[in-house]
Computed example of a mutant assay.
Amino acid sequence: MSTSVNSDVVPQQNEVPPVRREMKLKDGAISYLEWKAREGLPALHFAHANGFNAMTYRHLLAPLAPHFHICAWDARGHGFTKLPADPTTHADWYVYRDDLIAFIEPLVAETGGPILLSGHSMGSVTSLMVAAERPDLVRGLVLVDPVMVPKFARLMMRLFMMLGRKGGPMSLADGAERRRAVFADRATMAAAYKGRGAFRTWPEEMIADYVEGGTVDLADGQVGLACAPSWEAANFRSQGHDIWAAARKLNVPLTLLYAGQGSTCRAPAPQILGERDPQATLLRLGQATHFLPMEYPDVVRREMLAFDARLG
């Protein structure tokens, strides 16, 4: 891949440290973390959820570094990636699909073959759509609670948008838009999140990583969210992509992990995905919420390794 190195990320104890790199595109640059312990390892890309960033998943990914050559990007509008992100023109998630294709093409060329794609939530959807569009690039998929809601729910969202209504299916977007974007410092931000809201079940180290990878220094000495609340909200509202058509088009092996509590991967998604790969692992974690990678990182790692072993 044609990249430039930004800096080494400070590792946790006994952790293989990632390197932060940049990949130049015609309209900016994608920032990403890379773990590369040695040559010859199978390649894995991990895509984060809406509003998060690659660093958020360091606790999940670092123990896999002896087994995979790992890349984890900051998607457009997130983290340290510098690509245009205008919420007023954002209509669907195909832009992430196209960005990820551009990102992994050189990685596939470098490693000499298709790679594993994984992701959480929006990152799973992005990975799935890439596999549907460019199966030649993808060795297999490990999907973690992808956003696959029934068509009627998406139609309701679009209706609410047309009518300019709040609440109901727009509640997540409305909440994201109201997020506090500026804090005195990173420690204050992490303390504000601990045990609250979406972060209620997160371990402290993952909150700290989310803050580290998702904030920028402001001119007045404070820190702000790198992913603007308006962009996070636009992602919730921008449902013009057809995830069901992409799922039915899949022709790669897959593993699906989804939450038992408040999952965004709703029927008939598990059934449809299982039909695309008769050997697929479809694992519902009964006590897990949508934040499954934060709550059960050991299970996610185990299934990634099992999937890699299955592919041989």
Rank of each mutant, 00 (worst) to 15 (best):
H59A: 13
Y96S: 07
Y57T: 00
P66N: 01
A72G: 11
A75L: 06
N53F: 05
R76A: 03
E39I: 04
I70N: 11
H78N: 02
F52I: 00
R58Y: 11
L44A: 05
M55F: 05
F46C: 00
F52S: 13
I70E: 10
G77W: 00
R58K: 15
H69T: 08
F68N: 05
V95D: 12
C71A: 09
A49T: 11
A49W: 08
H59Y: 09
H67R: 11
P84F: 05
P84G: 07
W93D: 13
A47D: 14
P66R: 01
G40H: 14
A37L: 15
M55G: 02
K36I: 03
F80A: 13
W35F: 05
P66E: 00
A91Q: 13
I70M: 14
C71R: 13
H48I: 01
Y96K: 11
R58N: 15
A49I: 09
T88Q: 15
H48E: 01
D92G: 06
D86A: 04
L60V: 02
R58G: 10
L61P: 03
F46S: 02
D74Q: 10
H69C: 13
L61H: 02
H48K: 05
V95C: 14
T88F: 06
A43I: 08
M55P: 02
E39K: 15
V95M: 12
I70T: 10
L41P: 12
A72L: 06
I70S: 13
D74T: 09
F68R: 04
N53M: 03
F52L: 11
H45C: 11
T56L: 02
F52D: 07
A85V: 01
Y57E: 04
C71P: 01
A37S: 15
R58A: 09
T88R: 15
H78E: 05
A62V: 06
G79S: 02
D74C: 09
W73H: 14
L41T: 05
L60S: 01
T56M: 01
G40I: 12
A91D: 10
A47C: 14
T81C: 10
D92K: 11
M55N: 14
A62T: 07
P84E: 07
L64K: 01
A75T: 03
P66W: 00
P87K: 00
L44G: 05
F80K: 09
L83G: 12
N50G: 10
E39G: 11
M55S: 12
